[in-house]
Simulated assay, not measured.
Amino acid sequence: MERLLALIPPDVTRIDLLAPPFAGHLHPVLAMGRALSTHYQVRIISTEGARTRIEAAGLTALLLPGDYDSPLTAVVNPRYAVKSNPLRLYRQFKRVVGLLKNFADELAGVWLQQGKPDLAIADFTLPVVGEVCRRLVIPWWTSMPSPCVIDTPDGVPAYCGGLLPPVNTLQRFTQTLHRHKVRGFKRLLFRLFRQTIRQTGISELYRQDGSENAYSPDCILALGEAWFEFPRSWPVAVRFIGPALYTPPLTTTAPPFVAGKRHVLVTLGTHLDWHKEAVVQAVHQLAQTLPDWMFHFTDGDMAAGSVTGQKNVVRLPWVDYDCWLAHYDAVIHHGGAGILWHCLQREIPSLVYPVDYDQFDHAARLHHCGKGIWLRGGVQSIAGAKAALQRVVEGKEA
């Protein structure tokens, strides 16, 4: 976090960081908050669902009134894959817009009552923060855990199934079409919801320089490393500060490790509930082919229930990455930014099974730089991952 501290202007005393209550967005903000709290007055602004984790991190929570947690969960954790399906993306966006309008109104009220910060740093999923900041004259930065989704005039476009850098003219032309497709869909959604979006203060999708109005024009904190990303012309506001990794210290059951055994963690993060049972079944099939290995599947939900086990497969509600990830020989994960960088920093071999959102783009980058094996072909690619696991853990084919 030294790179973050070096960016803070000298006249700043109080910093507010904002994020929704979901681990992939909240935990990086908590990591930054902890680093900043040694030098500045820091508050974390979120919803009631984030209270326990903010307080466990030793930080001050400033919680917005109103019921956000249930509606937000329904939006970001549907019972189906969204991917690039236009109708499903439309429905998801429609539900988000109304929530963001209420969020902006209540945020302005909280700042007027509780005092304004000298700097606000907001997760990229909260674009309305920028308009509130402009209205109240508060400097505003964007926090971006997934830099690959930033819209740029060139380079490999995101949300297109995990494209790799083009190697010939046809691929370059195809990716240009994909870039136009993504921008066209964004413009269509903006036009469809123009009246509602304008209530938040956002009047334009893109600035005159082509950058996205949803992100800060002054500083976009890219929570990754430039070497991991594909070449592109980044907006001038982008600053790579490295991954922000942190897991709040909460009371959870420790994973059971067996001496002398290989251990593999399987995770789909905190979302994708609609797909987890199918993955558990695939893990059981994989475990049968490696009877001397132990497989731990985590639901990514501390309230998911008790620890259950069958033969060499254990299902856990939650695994604290900071405490336990180093004990695993390999990880099969969905390509979320958090688990991706946890594995990279600890040099733990990973097999990536992307399911939705930016996960395919992360899988493509892991594959391209030789830091992970991309499992393709649906959930059965997990069931048939014996050879890939043995290759990355034991260095042998099977």
Rank of each mutant, 00 (worst) to 15 (best):
A254L: 02
L59Y: 11
G260F: 15
V42S: 08
Q390D: 13
R34C: 05
V82S: 10
V75G: 10
L126E: 02
T247K: 02
I44S: 08
P139L: 00
D299I: 09
I138Y: 05
T73L: 14
V279T: 10
V110E: 04
Q390I: 14
E229K: 08
T38D: 11
L188Q: 10
V167W: 15
I197M: 14
P243V: 00
I45Q: 04
D358R: 07
G224P: 06
I382S: 08
V319P: 01
W274L: 03
G24I: 00
T247A: 02
I121A: 07
D67W: 03
A254H: 03
P153N: 03
Y206I: 00
D273V: 08
C148N: 06
L163H: 03
V110F: 03
S37Q: 07
E204Y: 14
D320S: 15
L325W: 10
D151S: 13
W318A: 02
H180C: 14
D67A: 07
A398K: 12
Y80A: 04
R34S: 03
L268D: 02
P9V: 02
A303H: 12
A330V: 00
V393D: 13
D151N: 09
A287D: 00
L340P: 05
Q113K: 13
T169K: 12
A388P: 07
D358P: 11
D299W: 15
H296W: 14
F360S: 03
T196D: 14
H178L: 13
L4P: 01
V75R: 11
P235K: 04
